[in-house]
Each structure stands twice: as C-alpha cells, then as structure tokens.
Nucleic acid binder design. Structure first.
Lengths: 214, 214
DNA sequence: GTCTATAATCCGATAGAC
DNA sequence: GTCTATCGGATTATAGAC
C-alpha cells in the first residue's frame, strides 16, 4: 500500500491543477483523498507544507521537460530542444507554471524553502549554460550569457503570461507558431541595422546581478 | 461635499494598492471609509462593481503615463517617451499594473465590462501606432506593426513580471538600467548575423491575430 | 490514524429600524 | 444614508474519543 502522505500529495496536485490556488483548501483536499480534514494534519503540518510539496512537484516536472534536451548532439539543438520543452510545459501545465511564479506570501510562506530555491537556481543555471554554449558555437552574439538569458527569458515569460492572461486571442497551436515567430524576431532584432548601430553608444551600462530563480 | 461614491472609490484604491486583492474586503473598505459595510451597498451593487471601478482608475492612470509622450516631436521620441512612461508606471504602481493583468474571474466577473475592454484596445492600438511610426521613420524594420509590437510587449511585460516576482534581485534603479539594456538587446538582436540569416527560412508562418488588450 | 465536535475568524450580502 | 443585527457560508486548525 502506498504511503498515505504520497497519496495526499497526489490529490493535492490534482486539486490545485484543477481549481488553482483559490479552489485549494484543506477540506476539499480531504474530501478528494476520502478522509476528513483533521486527518491530513497527521501527515502535514498545515496547508503551507502541502503547497510547498506541490511546488516541488511542479519544479521536478518542469526540470524533466527541460533536461530531456541534454541528450541532443549540438549546442543549437540542446538550446532549441529546451525551448520546445519549455513551450510544451507551459501549454500542457499552465497551473504548474503559475505556481512556480507565485509570490511566497500567496502560498502562505515568508520565504521559499531552501531546497526549492536551489531547484530554481539549477534551472536558471541550465539556461545560462545553454546560452553560453550557443555563444561559443557562433549562434548567439558574444557577451555576458546571464544578460542574454535574461532578455530571452523575459521575452518567453512575457509571451506565456500574455497567452495565459488571454491577451493573445489565439489557440494553442497558433500560440506555438507565434511564440517561435516572435523568438525569431528577438534573434534577428527588431531595429533596422542603421538604427541598431546608432543605439550602441546610447545603451546604459549593464547591471551586475546575482541571479536567484528560474 | 464630495460625492460619497467617489470617496468610497478613493478608499477602495488605497485599500487595494496597499494590501492587494487578498486584503480587499467590503468590511475593510467600510472601516477605511469610516462607515459600516452595509452602507457601501447604497453606492455600489457589490464587491465586483467596486473592483471594476478600481480597474478603471488603473487604466486611466496607465493611459496618462503613456499618452504624455504624444507631445514629442519625432516618432522615436514618442516611442521611447512612451517606454519611459511605461517603466515609470510599473515601478511606481506595481499593484495597478497587477490588477490590469488579472483574469476577470479573480475579480469575481465572468467578463470585463465593455468600457474597460475598450480602454485596453485603445492602449494596444496606441503601441501599434508608435511601432508603425517607427517603421515609417526607418527606426524599426519593416513588417507587420502588430507582430513587432507583440514581441516588444512580451519582452517588456516579462521583464516587469520577473522583477515584481522577485526573480531579478535588483533595486528599482538597477531595474531601470536592466530594462533598457535588455530592450537594446531586443532592438539589435541576440543572434549573430550569420545565424540570423540561416534563421530566415526556418521561421514558421506568422499568425493572423485580432488583438484584444493592452 | 481517523473520527466527531468545535473553536475562532473571516467573508458577502440582506432585513428592517431610524 | 446609515445603522444594528443577522443569515449562511467559507476557512485553518485543535481537542479528545476511539
């Protein structure tokens, strides 16, 4: 027989993925498991501990989607493979992507557990490594891999947020194409070559950053 | 003496801006106004109607920040002035930016009131116009202004989200520089010129879109 | 390990007196 | 237009029996 804590976690994931954070309560969770609410407190200290376990599952799943691309033979394929994994994840699991980007206070915590922060750092480092590889392979312009990854991260994250918020009235399949087409525009640049040249001297100094999350 | 509904709205904005949507209740609002909860229902049908008025205020303020740039003499200055306005708004009023990007259900509505949707369309159209102008002035590459604006919108929105989520551990002042530096990278493109050329044939077809919000 | 019962709060909204 | 009083519901969490 399965560990009861694992069964509760499974139901907690189902409950969150189905109804989001608003629809998540200890009572509903208990109903889903088939026990009463107080029984959960034998296995979890409280709602916060349940949610942090759900958050761990989200990160584990996200990492699986990304890291699959590590088997590819070239830097470009590892990069675009990871991008495909990212795209699949955000489309297939919008709620899991959502909980990964919630403020700790929304989950009832002051700060995230340190092991979860470590998972975020690992994912962020994964992207920086992909970017560095592509720089070394002559695919991306030379520069600070962390800064370039922030630009691409922001673009990808923004596209996904706009899609999930309903600001981009497209189907999933259309969004896949839009995401890639917009990514290509980021690759090539939106400015004319003449203006891009003018811009070089006008850009503010780059900021020194110690990153935290992915 | 001021219209009581206006005073309630003012307190509702304060309450939301201070504590977010979680901390927003009709009882707290009444306490802030200095009356009891049932009295609010003389002026508002319910919580939903209050929140939609707060949302209107958010859009009005946002539009004021953007449209100030319309007085500038050149397309480039109108574009970068609007960008400055955007940056100022998201830094000075993160909660107002937040409510503008909430799903209607979070606010207790099935769909947004049509006048709010109209404000969103107007703001979106404003950006498309700025982009078109810059294309005609030889600053941005020729193409579909709506597509280019989506790419830049996604990048800006993503940067802001990452900052507000605490994923970019920088101060406000550092974020201003980071935002502009990353924007410059989007202008110039992140790929090498050789790779950008290779990319041209590989990009999926552009998607036809009828936009909805800003 | 699970149950019943319950404490202690919060919420939105309404009835009816003044 | 505002009040008191209240309805009916939700929530997290605990006490104590079994």
């Amino acid at each position: 027989m399965m560990d009861q804590r694992e069964r509760i976690l499974g139901c907690a994931c189902d409950l969150y993925l189905q109804g989001g954070l608003d629809g998540f309560s200890m009572r509903k969770l208990a109903r889903e498991v088939g026990i009463t609410a107080p029984a959960i407190y034998r296995h979890y200290d409280g709602r916060e501990e349940v949610l942090s376990d759900v958050l761990r599952e989200a990160h584990r799943t996200f990492a699986r989607y990304l890291y699959a691309a590590l088997g590819e033979p070239t830097a470009l394929e590892r990069f675009s493979g990871a991008g495909e994994g990212y795209l699949n994840f955000v489309i297939e699991h919008p709620r899991w992507y959502g909980i990964m980007h919630m403020a700790p206070e929304q989950l009832g915590m002051d700060v995230l557990p340190s092991d979860i922060e470590a998972m975020q750092s690992a994912i962020h480092q994964f992207w920086i490594d992909r970017v560095r590889e592509c720089m070394q392979s002559g695919i991306l312009k030379d520069g600070d891999p962390e800064m370039a990854s922030i630009t691409m991260w922001a673009h990808a994250h923004g596209m996904v947020q706009l899609f999930h918020e309903g600001c981009l009235p497209v189907t999933e399949e259309e969004f896949r194409m839009l995401f890639k087409a917009s990514g290509a525009r980021l690759m090539a640049g939106v400015a004319t070559e003449e203006f891009a040249k003018d811009l070089e001297g006008m850009v503010p100094e780059e900021v020194d950053i110690g990153m935290k999350t992915g």
